[in-house]
Amino acid sequence: MTRQNQDHLFERMTIRGAVDSASFVPWIRRHAAKLGLRQEIRHADAGRIEVEVAGPVELIDMLEMGCSLGPIDVWVETITRTPAAGGTGGQP
């Protein structure tokens, strides 16, 4: 199966909870890099982190699975995903 056949989604992932972004943002970047996902952190505060990602749905699912746990010092209450407009141009 070639890469072009895989559907590439552009999504915004909103992570809500008690999230210490100082530890979580680098964690998310590392996890996305392991998945080969381009991502851009659009927003990060103590209660909400927004990540834009592009890639096959299985990989975005993997990012969601990882982020729903994250480092031990954060608690993720919910993760919601919505289609994002256009490409992210984010860093890998």
Partner: peptide
């Protein structure tokens, strides 16, 4: 409890 050295997928949802 931190999956930083793992790659859980959607199939691993019960574990997560």
């Amino acid at each position: 409890l931190d999956p930083g050295m793992e790659i859980p997928t959607r199939a691993d949802l019960t574990s997560v």
